[in-house]
Design a binder for these strands. Structure first.
Length: 567
RNA sequence: GAGCCGGUAGCUCAGUCGGUAGAGCAGCGGCCUUUUAAGCCGUUGGUCGCGGGUUCGAGUCCCGCCCGGCUCACCA
């Protein structure tokens, strides 16, 4: 902590001022002010003339403050220009961090628009409305008898303007003396626009709402150190607009997801995370210990079996959004705890689920990014339905020249083939795992566009219903986007005798060395004996979905507090 | 687990061949009533991740450890 800020804290208390007051009467979040007085352009082409007041280098090119008749607009360009000279730029009009900006701008010869007219169109006059807003002080610019600054909340930033003649000597000096960058401040005053057109609160009164005892990260570069950004995510959120954007997006996706599922007659439920048998997926669980019961419990690897028990119980459509825990390696696309939505619908089969999935993605994309074509790691992904469909064994045959009967035939010949194409540990994998690994190795990497891979081999799908046209297959699909498995779904196996046999097969697999093979859940079999209606179920990985929408290549960027070793 | 890269001021980063540890921002003291990466003048600030070694001398070279990133493995 900073010595000086601690002294201020002490001095405030001595003056009888509580640096941590109980409440603040505010009228708006900052973003609401902006919504009221500003509309967002939609990327229309404009060309404007003005003087380059400041040229700043950023990662890709330059940001220019272009001024005409004292009104300013930001220009993002790769063109190199000199300050204080006049230029004409043509580009797309967008609002970036609250400011009207011409992006992808190129030098041009003729200006068809005036900055003044653009501003009048999108920035309305606030008519000195009286407002009270709170936020963290992120900039202070002293100007003698006036002070400018910015306060920020999650919804945005707004400029504050303090004048000695309005506040009076004592309050003005109090601000200079006691308010630091990082403090939470409440201000009351009138909204106006400055000469350059920026929405600003002319402060009539202010109150310290909480003292910040540490200096803030650097204002221009933000907080870059990845380790610090994850360990102290609050600082990341204060300093980096991109971090705020991603987690607001994540929240929006969850909200849209609930809206969509609720509107389709699904009921949201919660099932146990602590389980005595961790089943429903192929993975190694975390183990924990219950002191009172004196027994080991597992953190769930999937909610699947519980959700199907609910369908048996008469819930026709259920969904659960929740964490699953898998005791596996950690990398760019795997976190030991991750969020899934898993859902089940009576009377549906996997064809219904594919339609539903298409509809869901369209709903999600239109309400977040506003487009069905999104850019991910330099590639354009097109979510216009219908999505591509590819049969599992047809893909395999296309890539290897070997057909289904080969892969499902003699295990040793499959093993030989796996060794040939350098599948790791081919000599000790079970038949099921061999096929799975060969598929991952040869087929998955080419699946960039959204694709339903359908009709998986039965031996790697112990909970899926046998294919109605082929006893070697099950009615299952994985939804693959940008080579990642985004969803996994099937027509549910509801024959208790078949299910029991499949579990027995899994136990054999486990005995043959597959640690991830599924455990038998006796109560689940009993539930099936009471009758599970025809049902289809699906799980969608929320973290990977957010990665896709946010265009980020690391799962840690979309998890607020990713796991790190203690420092 | 292995390889590579990184850890230097609160933050973002430089630091050459081993020779007294730097910049910008933030901070502090001034000037400035429409500024906005404000500007101008002055100025404080270091366990160079930790421990050991080589050397007259180590941020720099060597060894070990810790934390992070990337890649490959493990998990399977």
């Amino acid at each position: 902590m900073e010595e000086l800020r601690l002294e201020k804290l002490k001095s405030l208390k001595e003056k009888g001022i509580n640096p941590y007051p109980y409440r603040f009467d505010f009228t708006d979040f900052i973003g609401d002010l902006r919504k009221r007085y500003e509309t967002d352009p939609k990327g229309e082409t404009v060309s404007v003339k003005g003087t380059a007041k400041r040229v700043s280098r950023v990662e890709e090119g330059f940001v220019i403050r272009l001024a005409d008749e004292n009104l300013e607009i930001l220009v993002f360009t790769e063109e190199q220009v000199e300050p204080k000279k006049e230029y004409v730029f043509e580009g797309k009009l967008l609002r970036i961090e609250g400011k009207l900006s011409v992006v992808d701008a190129k030098l041009s010869s003729e200006a068809k628009d005036k900055i003044k007219e653009i501003k009048e169109k999108y920035d309305k006059e606030p008519d000195r409305e009286e407002v009270a807003v709170g936020g963290r002080v992120v900039a202070i610019r002293e100007m003698g008898k006036a002070i400018f600054g910015h306060i920020q909340d999650l919804s945005g930033k707004v400029q504050i303007y303090l004048r000695k003649d309005i506040l009076g000597e004592e309050r003005f000096e109090f601000f200079r003396e006691y308010i630091d960058l990082g403090d939470i401040l409440g201000v009351k005053g009138k909204l106006f626009r400055t000469q350059t057109g920026e929405l600003t609160v002319e402060v009539e009164d202010f109150q310290l709402l909480s003292k910040c005892l540490h200096p803030l990260p650097e204002k221009w570069h933000g907080l870059r150190d990845v380790e610090l950004r994850y360990r102290q995510r609050y600082l990341d959120l204060i300093a980096n607009e991109e971090a705020r954007r991603i987690f607001i997006l994540r929240s929006k996706v969850l909200s849209l997801l609930r809206q969509f599922f609720d509107s389709k007659g699904f009921i949201e439920v919660e099932t146990p995370i602590l389980q005595t048998v961790a089943s429903g997926a192929a993975a190694k669980p975390f183990v924990t210990y219950h002191n009172y019961l004196e027994m080991n419990l597992f953190l769930r690897i999937a909610p699947e079996l519980y959700l199907k028990k609910l369908v048996v119980g008469g819930f026709p459509r259920v969904y659960e959004i929740g964490k699953n825990f898998r005791n596996e390696g950690v990398d760019r696309t795997h976190n030991p705890e991750f969020t899934m939505v898993e859902f089940y619908a009576s009377y549906w089969d996997y064809n219904d689920l594919m339609k539903f999935t298409e509809e869901f993605f369209v709903y999600l994309l239109e309400n977040t990014l506003g487009t069905l074509k999104l850019e991910y790691e330099g590639k354009e992904l097109d979510f216009t339905p219908p999505f591509k469909r590819a049969r599992y064994f047809e893909l395999l045959e296309e890539k290897t020249g070997k057909d289904k009967s080969f892969f499902l035939g003699d295990v040793e010949r499959v093993r030989e083939f796996a060794k040939e194409i350098e599948v790791k540990h081919a000599d000790r994998l079970t038949h099921a795992k061999l096929i799975d690994k060969i598929f991952e190795k040869v087929a998955e990497e080419d699946l960039v566009q959204p694709t339903f891979v359908i009709d998986f081999p039965k031996i790697i799908s112990p909970l899926a219903k046998t294919h109605r046209e082929d006893p070697d297959l099950v009615e299952r699909f994985e939804f693959i986007v940008a080579t990642y498995e985004l969803a996994n779904a099937y027509t549910e196996l509801n024959d208790p005798f078949d299910q029991k046999e499949r579990f027995v097969e899994q136990i054999k697999e486990k005995e043959m060395g597959d640690e991830e093979a599924m455990d038998m859940d006796e109560d689940f079999i009993r539930a099936l004996e009471y009758g599970l209606p025809p049902t289809a179920g699906e799980g969608i990985g929320i973290d990977r979905l957010i990665m896709l929408l946010a265009n980020t290549d690391s799962i840690r960027e979309v998890i607020l507090f990713p796991h790190l070793r203690p420092s």
